[in-house]
Design a protein around this nucleic acid. Structure first.
Lengths: 136, 136
DNA sequence: AAATTTACTTGCATTTTGCAAGTACAAATA
DNA sequence: TATTTGTACTTGCAAAATGCAAGTAAATTT
């Protein structure tokens, strides 16, 4: 089992205790891009997470209600991971991280396109994206 | 010295490579609350960071241009740490983390007050707070 | 029936974290 | 002026987390 030990009652600290490790937000990013992923999909991401770490993080995020597992409609060998509402609600944080990164790094052009869309109308982007993630 | 190895060119990943560890955002949080802190101030925070980890993180954040050191005006024994513009620009991310935490945790009342102010007018809050952090 | 895919687990080396103690310089106190 | 205290670290070592390679078990494909 996974221990959820809070370092303090501070909102930043409590949040980091759930997803403030090296990998969790990348898993969540994948789910925001793809809406649903199999275990293997996560392993394919370019940052190359180790399989045991992936398993541990998925467990942690599920225990904390950020993601859920469900059966794959076409195969019993596969599992689908999805964001819960709690996970979907991390979108504004992700958007702000993207904007910060856009200001201080040189990003690949395919990322820039999305960010330019955000910059045009942040609220609209978030609203639309949340809607997308919520149905399904 | 500190190694800045990027796992990928993804904005989320690049950002996490700088401040995506267990402690950095808590250091940044302290600086956002206090505007400037000494080494000892950070050690006093309720999460109780270990002194060697603190030294390592401060070094990392300074190397990456998120914070700066300056002489304490009243004592050569003390050092003042402050946010750079790059650090101040993390404020919107912090605000969103607070809002997420507000939705999913029960927070202490003194934190709630600040968050209620944010909820009234997020843009205004951020603008005002950035102004505050920028002068000095 | 055998090989392959999928989602993991296991074992072990490496790296990071945490704790306690130590150091060096500045400042306050006796 | 000598000694103690404060401040910002560093060092050494144990514990925990991470990373890598290989293994397992059930489902699917061949």
């Amino acid at each position: 089992m996974i221990e959820i030990k809070k370092r303090s009652e501070c909102p930043i600290s409590c949040s980091l205790d759930i997803w403030g490790d090296k990998w969790s937000l990348l898993i969540i990013r994948d789910l925001m891009h793809a809406k649903q992923c199999t275990y293997g999909d996560f392993l394919k991401s370019e940052e190359k997470i180790a399989t045991n770490i992936l398993a541990a993080r998925l467990q942690m995020l599920e225990t904390n209600g950020v993601i859920t597992k469900q059966d794959h409609p076409e195969s019993k060998a596969k599992v689908l991971y999805k964001l819960t509402q709690k996970g979907i609600d991390l979108l504004p944080i992700m958007v702000e991280i993207n904007l910060w990164a856009d200001k201080y790094f040189t990003l690949p052009s395919e990322r820039k396109e999305m960010i330019d869309e955000v910059k045009k109308d942040k609220e609209a982007f978030i609203k639309e994206k949340i809607k997308e993630l919520s149905l399904s």
